[in-house]
């Protein structure tokens, strides 16, 4: 029963998304990306743009990411070992 409902709902959702999104695949990149490609090497000195973004332009995101990792580790230890005082 749930399976049938699930299929129906998901199909409706799929039709919705595909009908309303006109996403073009493989076209030109956006404004931000052009700026990265233009300035990336000169500003950060890293040839690999992913690195330059990860470790320089958006390092704040990366900081958040590591914190989440830290929280998860803490959480796992808390759940498994219990919350000792």
């Amino acid at each position: 029963m749930k399976g049938i409902i699930g299929i129906i709902i998901v199909l409706i959702l799929g039709v919705l998304i595909f009908s309303s999104l006109r996403l073009e695949y493989g076209n030109s990149v956006g404004i931000t990306a052009e700026m990265y490609i233009e300035k990336g090497v000169s500003e950060t000195g890293a040839v690999n743009l992913v690195t330059s973004i990860l470790a320089d332009y958006r390092v704040y995101d990366t900081l958040g990411e590591t914190i989440i990792l830290f929280i998860a580790i803490l959480g796992v230890s808390m759940v498994l070992k219990g919350d000792k005082k």
Binding site: I31, T32, M35, Y36, D56, Y57, R58, V59, Y60, D61
Partner: peptide
């Protein structure tokens, strides 16, 4: 602006 980057590029 974090890191002093332009808001297009940084955060």
């Amino acid at each position: 602006n974090v890191g002093g980057w332009n808001p297009f590029l940084g955060i």
